[in-house]
Amino acid sequence: MSLAFDALLALALLWSAWRSLATPDLTRAVVMFIVFGLLMALAWARLDAPDIALAEAAIGAGLTGALLLDALGAFGERRGGDRP
């Protein structure tokens, strides 16, 4: 059971990383990056490293995601108001 979960987690990590890099839509890339960060936090928790899991969830997914979304918003304004 836990092996299946780990395999699923590893696949989801690779998939979200690939989607985040490969998609041409910036908004989707940022959202996939946040998803990747949350999955990464799960992976750290599965590896018995709850300290790193906490830091990853808070900084990797939360703050970096917010910063990237803010950057997207700034880009959208510079292009004349339309969202990218």
């Binding site: 300290d51 906490l54 830091a55 808070a58 900084i59 939360g62 703050l63 917010a66």
Partner: peptide, 8 residues
């Protein structure tokens, strides 16, 4: 971690 939560 606590600082990151405060920042969020």
């Amino acid at each position: 971690q606590a600082g990151a939560v405060l920042a969020a």
